[in-house]
Design a protein around this nucleic acid. Structure first.
Length: 855
RNA sequence: GGCCAGGUGGCGGAAUGGUAUACGCGGUAGUCUCAAAAACUACUAGUCGCAAGGCUGUGAGGGUUCGACUCCCUCCCUGGCCACCA
């Protein structure tokens, strides 16, 4: 037989599959629909190995599902708006649209090398107006419901990109795209009120009825950051706290530098100091503010009274209190909050202990003591070890000694009037009730999640469908006028002026209400809007009447399995859940969660163990690998490299291993017996065991072990004298999802193919229908039969005191007979050696597994 | 600082209470060959032993169990994400 040369067979079959439209899906007529989705890609222009990992490996699951009789819809598209297009265009002088569209063409070609079942007829490209029209439509619907609003806030501003960034796009104080520092700037912009959906976005105990990774659900819940507390009035200032029980220890108030009532509290004598401080704060970027080790602040000169103690306590301004969370003001409880402690120590503010760790009431009561003698504690996983005296954070024999500081745990109330002696938990309830009864505070649930700012001062995005009229104010573009097309002719170079404002013809419009002269909104939407609902549009990409037909939604949604990167835990997957919940509320969809199962994939690192990057020179080019080993080997390698969700380095010699494996499969063809051999019971057992394991492993997203059992079976088959047609055929069918090209080629060889057509169809002539069924990928997935899995003899382990002493082959019919097995075990010399002269106290028998003598 | 995921041969990993190291890579030896490559065959956790066989071994220490990589407790280390969340 000729040699296995991937390059000779892969393009051939890819063309044939395409010609016969083998994988095309009719979205209206589909039995057993199965929606397989992988996060779509940004059209950077070049497909890297990560794309292969993301798309080619789930394709294995999709192919098995197809063979199992499902209609598998595996669409692909491009998340085509965004800054890189603009940046690249600026650098190379190509228009962002041209750059993006030509990248898409190139990447589609590269995608075709993978041999996936992708259906490009139902593709989506977000930068085309038949797509982003519906971004605008959703925006208008949200506006109608009061969920889109214009607000003015301090925002992350990238000086270099001249744009506002969401918190998620600020990495360590730098812009995620250009890596320049991000500063705080007050900007007016559009927000989507995601905070209205926090309750529904929080994941419940049962995972909201869907199978999503635990880590992702926990990550989202942490990000939403629900905390139950109370807003408490200290005269004119409202503070937010979750520790009402510490209120007797509140010895000062801190307000944020951006606090709206700030000027009210600054006394004449302190004005200069405060102004100086505020100026220094403004100069700091987010990065500097976060990295600052030492807290800083300034006294306003004013005092308020503590509602429970009646004491007059000073109001300070400090930038460790953020305007964006709670009320922008806190009560400073230095004895029980590390940040307040640090602040109090620096400015010599009183520290008053009001909670002692339970069981340590005999320790010195440290009320009102000076900071250096503070009650010093170290926390050790929930347990508290009190220590008197003061320590510094010094290392001594490798151990870190406890640091002087605050005790933040629960305990027993002290120095708190009538609450003394209560548990802090109980006191928290009592104090909350007292404050509410006296109208001094209200319980409140606070969230860390902010509304989603979607305005971007950039060109390459969806125009916001709003018109500003001098008379009517801001007027939404009427639905019939959608889409608001993104103009081609603009100056998109960063000048500080929004690019869309540079096209006068586009900018100036008539007000839809009064027909007077008006101007369009010149900003574009965050690209996360585009990716928040694209999976719906795949189902109906040409529909210009509605976002997606409800019939197709009913057939296909929710998505059966959604693969993507773990880095989208806090961005894309959260936003898209929000969008889907909104679309449910306006009656577009009828489900609450859009994907039944979510799988996070891992990352392929360079062979040096660090992230692939051009500067490190460790980038693996998939096209190059395909040239060398073929697409099948690359697919198989990526499936075999390890568990699908881990981070693993590229191993250049391991791909040789799977290539070698495919060659062995190829040459196994020569071992097919010309005369039909009978399968032994062992042959059958191994075959059915393999079918079972491959099927179950693919279902469980364990691609690596599925490949391993196929290798094991190949090792078994290679050791045999002859391989029967049945075995070989089954082997190819099981391997087909992993290596679609080589299996198609081998399937097409007469011996295998004829056997199928003659054996199962007609012996005389092939019917027309049969001629259409030519591909291995149109065959049914093998089904295992339980009866073949059992062995006539089972290996039973014999242990003495839990140590392995012998392995016996026991006939199936006496497996459950403890006495018979025990007798056989005792007869073994290897076992008898250890039982000689010993009294057997106990015999443990696990049927079909082991027998253990306890002496 | 918080949360999460991990720690198993020379390497990637397998095994989630019952033969630890499947499968693959790498390595060693052999077959074939004028030779090399490829392919094939055997071996490949450590240690003692000529062998039969024994002992040790899944980050460290303890516990539960007839039996622990697996469950529980304490600790160490690595990676990821979030981080002045009041």
């Amino acid at each position: 037989m000729k040699k296995y040369i991937p390059h000779d067979i892969e393009p051939k079959w890819q063309q044939k599959w395409q010609k016969d439209a083998l994988y095309s899906v009719d979205l209206d007529k589909s039995k057993n629909p199965y929606y397989l989705l992988v996060e779509f890609t940004y059209p950077s222009g070049d497909l890297h190995i990560g794309h292969w990992f993301a798309f080619a490996v789930p394709d294995i699951l999709g192919r098995m599902k197809r063979m199992q009789g499902f209609t598998v819809f595996y669409p692909n598209g491009f998340d085509a708006f965004g800054l890189p297009a603009e940046n690249a265009a600026i650098q190379r002088g190509i228009h962002p649209r041209d750059w993006t569209l030509s990248n898409i063409e190139n990447m589609k070609k590269q995608f075709s090398l993978m041999g996936t079942i992708h259906d490009w007829g139902n593709s989506v490209i977000t930068c085309l107006s038949n797509y982003y029209k519906w971004n605008q439509w959703i925006f208008l619907k949200m506006l109608e419901k009061g969920l889109a609003y214009k607000g003015k806030t301090l925002s992350n501003w990238c000086q270099h990109c001249q744009t506002v960034l969401a918190n998620e796009n600020v990495e360590a104080g730098n812009c995620w795209r250009c890596h320049n520092p991000v500063v705080q700037k007050e900007v007016e912009q559009w927000f989507l009120k995601i905070t209205d959906y926090v309750q529904r976005l929080l994941w419940g105990e049962g995972g909201n009825g869907v199978d999503w990774p635990k880590a992702l659900m926990e990550g989202q819940n942490n990000w939403i950051g629900k905390s139950q507390g109370q807003v408490i009035k200290f005269d004119g200032i409202e503070v937010f706290t979750t520790r009402q029980d510490t209120i007797f220890g509140a010895t000062f108030i801190v307000i944020s530098p951006e606090h709206p009532l700030l000027s009210k509290f600054v006394t004449f004598e302190n004005k200069e100091n405060v102004q100086k401080y505020l100026k220094s704060v403004q100069k700091k970027s987010e990065l500097e503010r976060k990295e600052e080790k030492v807290k800083s602040g300034v006294f306003t000169g004013s005092f308020v009274s503590n509602p429970l103690t009646g004491e007059q306590i000073p109001i300070w301004i400090a930038d460790y209190v953020l305007m964006g969370y709670g009320t922008g003001a806190i009560m400073g409880v230095p004895a029980h909050d590390a940040r307040d402690f640090e602040f109090a120590k620096k400015y010599d503010l009183p520290i008053k202990t009001v909670i002692q760790p339970a069981g340590h009431t005999d320790s010195p009561s440290p009320a009102n003591q000076v900071p250096d003698q503070a009650y010093v504690l170290t926390k050790s996983k929930g347990k508290v070890l009190p220590k008197a005296g003061s320590y510094d954070l010094t290392k001594s024999k490798g151990k870190v000694l406890p640091k002087a500081g605050s005790y933040e745990g629960e305990g027993v109330m002290v120095n708190s009037g009538e609450y003394d002696g209560m548990s802090s938990n109980e006191a928290r309830e009592k104090i909350s009730n007292y404050l509410e009864e006296h109208h001094l505070g209200q319980r409140k649930v606070n969230y860390h999640l902010h509304d989603w700012s979607i305005s971007r001062q950039r060109y390459w995005g969806t125009p916001i469908p709003i018109i500003y009229c001098e008379k009517c104010g801001s007027v939404p573009v009427p639905e019939k006028d959608l889409p608001v097309e993104l103009p081609y002719e603009v100056d998109y170079h960063p000048t500080g002026k929004p690019p869309l404002a540079t096209n006068e013809a586009w900018l100036n419009v008539k007000c839809p209400r009064c027909l007077g002269s008006a101007k369009r909104d010149t900003e574009t939407m965050d690209t996360f809007v585009d990716s928040s609902w694209y999976f719906l549009r795949y189902l109906d990409n040409k529909n210009d009447q509605e976002i997606v037909s409800s019939k197709r939604l009913r057939t296909w949604m929710p998505i059966d399995i959604y693969f993507g990167g773990a880095e989208h835990t806090l961005g894309h997957t959260l936003y898209s859940r929000f969008f889907v919940k909104f679309l449910k509320d306006i009656g577009v969809v009828d489900f609450e969660e859009y994907a039944k199962k979510r799988v996070n994939h891992g990352v392929i690192l360079g062979s040096d163990g660090s992230r692939m990057s051009k500067s490190r020179g460790n980038v693996v080019n998939p096209d190059e690998q395909v040239r060398q080993f073929g697409a099948d080997a690359v697919r198989l390698y990526l499936a075999f490299i390890g568990p699908y969700d881990i981070v693993s380095p590229w191993n250049p010699s391991a791909i040789n291993g799977v290539y070698h494996f495919l060659q062995r499969v190829w040459s196994l063809y020569d071992k097919i017996a010309s005369i039909g051999n009978k399968l032994s019971s062992e042959d059958l057992r191994i075959m059915h065991k393999t079918i079972k394991k491959v099927t179950e492993d693919l279902e469980d997203i364990k691609f690596n072990t599925a490949v391993a059992v196929l290798m094991e079976w190949l090792n078994y088959l290679s050791r045999k004298e002859n391989v029967t047609r049945e075995e070989y055929k089954t082997y190819l069918l099981l391997l087909a999802p992993f290596a679609p090209h080589i299996t198609e080629e081998l399937w097409s060889f007469d011996k295998v193919y004829t056997e199928r057509t003659c054996g199962e169809c007609s012996r005389t002539s092939r019917s027309a229908q049969d001629q259409q069924i030519w591909s291995i990928h149109q065959q049914s997935w093998p089904i295992f039969d339980k009866q073949y899995l059992e062995e006539a003899e089972v290996a039973v382990i014999v242990q003495v005191n839990g140590r392995l002493r012998d392995i016996l082959m026991i006939q199936k019919d006496i497996l459950n007979d403890k006495e018979a097995v025990e007798k056989l075990a005792r007869a073994s010399q290897k076992v008898a050696k250890y039982l000689d002269g010993q009294t057997v106290k106990k015999v443990i028998h696990v049927s079909g597994k082991l027998i253990n003598f306890v002496v």
